[in-house]
Amino acid sequence: MLIKKKVCLLGAFAVGKSSLVERFVYDRFDEKYLTTIGVKVSQKILAPRRDSRSGQLRQYMFLIWDIASLDKFDHMVMNYYRGAAGALAIGDLPRPETFTGLEDLCAKFKSVSTDAEIVVLGNKLDIFQPHEETIRLLKKTAQRWSPDHLLTSAKTGHHVEKAFQLLATKIGNHS
């Protein structure tokens, strides 16, 4: 049975939300930065997985909402977030300040989609010079919204598939 699930990508501008979708859905990466306006919905069918409780095979189609970073949280943004089963909350590892705003973004998302699952990602691992403060901020955000966090690179593909699979597992366990 194919189950459609809406998942959102949250994060400040230029953290690599669109690049993560491009890598996951089309397995490609473009160096050029082009800011997203509004919302871009992509679809990907995940490999079937056996439900740990019922033992039944489940297959998800993710409707991935790549949402532009937004300056204000209004009615329109609520409609972008509404009805989501999960979200990847993304920070830019070389820009620690992007993790500070992420906590607030997750709170707003959860206020609309209360039952949704969140996985926190630190993206651009390929150009990240290990920095204690950044990791501390990432873990702090992760602790509040989900115990799970991953370091990813849309450029190399590192842990991109894993991030979406982890979200699928969490959504599966929840439903």
Binding site: V41, H75, M76
Partner: peptide, 8 residues
């Protein structure tokens, strides 16, 4: 109403 703006 239900409104979505700038759908790509």
């Amino acid at each position: 109403e239900f409104h979505l703006k700038y759908v790509n």
